[in-house]
């Protein structure tokens, strides 16, 4: 069964989140797509159609596994049964990457189904580090941690988010998933500069990038309040920030997240192609620059 699958490694190209609406288009048309990302929690049943479709799609495409329910940033102990279910999905589909969020979603016994924010302090740093150690040990693989989108500011934070992430990587050996839309949303919501954030980000640890659409609103004081809605196209300034990110981090597997008001396959695939265009343009610019410098360019 596994022998028929393509290699698990994700290419540095555009990919899209796998949606049930598109199962048939993908299987019938075998579109040229870098990879598909799945939410681990959608494939935790024992059997049935979701696994049937995913098994078929996995034969032709690499996938990345994205968890939304581990509550890495919470104060409670991790849900052991849930980690075990994540491992089952990882064992079943051999994903090229596994990622989770710098956020929490469970407290006491309640699961809130949202990626909730945490303050960045010595205490929360240690909690996150312990949780990532536990997950990586149990899964027997490295995980990537994703920067969140935030709507509020914690007065008691003592770390900048970029420094907090850098410290987590140092202590756990995890990698990072840089969500460029989240950068734009959080920076705008807190009055900061998205460009500064990208420039300060420890890009040497980035192994995947996320892009998605956001909904513009305002708070009661008239300040912009962007909502990470994943319900529309990626905004132009986010594409510009993405180009800046690729120039720093180099070409990376880049996911288009579109989870609500899900578009036709063609519209979604077009967004992923735009990521390919940015990556290609970066590669060409680099090649021209090194030619000018007289560097040896492999294959040229």
């Amino acid at each position: 069964m596994c022998a028929q699958r393509v290699n698990a490694k994700l290419p540095a190209r555009g990919g899209v989140g796998l949606k049930a609406d598109h199962y048939h288009s993908i299987l019938n048309d075998k579109p040229d797509m870098g990879f598909f990302e799945i939410h681990a929690e959608n494939y935790m049943g024992a059997g049935g159609p979701p696994h049937g479709y995913l098994e078929a799609i996995r034969r032709d495409y690499p996938i990345s596994l994205h968890g939304v329910g581990l509550s890495i940033g919470g104060a409670d102990p991790l849900n052991k049964e849930h980690i075990s279910r994540v491992k089952d999905v990882a064992d079943r589909y051999d994903p090229g990457l596994f990622s989770e969020h710098l956020a929490w979603s469970t407290h006491d016994t309640e699961y809130f189904n949202d990626l909730l924010p945490l303050p960045y302090t010595e205490v929360t740093l240690q909690q996150v580090v312990d949780h990532i150690d536990e997950v990586q040990t149990f899964l027997g693989r490295q995980m990537l941690l994703e920067n969140p989108s935030a709507y509020v500011i914690f007065k008691e934070s003592t770390y900048e988010e970029t420094e907090f992430l850098r410290e987590i990587v140092k202590r756990t050996g995890c990698g990072l998933l840089l969500d460029v839309n989240n950068v734009f949303v959080s920076a705008t919501n807190s009055g900061g500069s998205p460009e500064d954030y990208v420039d300060r980000f420890p890009v040497e640890h980035v192994q995947e990038i996320h892009l998605g659409g956001h909904a513009p609103e305002t708070d009661e004081l008239g300040y912009p309040l962007l909502i990470d809605a994943h319900d529309r196209k990626v905004a132009d300034p986010v594409w510009a920030l993405y180009a800046r990110t690729i120039d720093r981090a180099g070409p990376q597997p880049t996911l288009i997240e579109w989870d609500a008001n899900i578009p036709t396959w063609e519209i979604l695939a077009y967004e992923a192609e735009q990521a390919d265009v940015v990556i290609q343009s970066h590669i060409e610019t680099q090649a021209q620059a090194s030619q000018k410098r007289g560097d040896h360019v492999p294959g040229v």
């Binding site: 709507y151 509020v152 500011i153 914690f154 009055g191 009661e220 004081l221």
Partner: peptide, 18 residues
Amino acid sequence: DGVVGRDGHPSEKRFGVY
């Protein structure tokens, strides 16, 4: 407490997103 908007005060609208 301590979870605020850009003016340093709690914001119904921002917390309301969650």
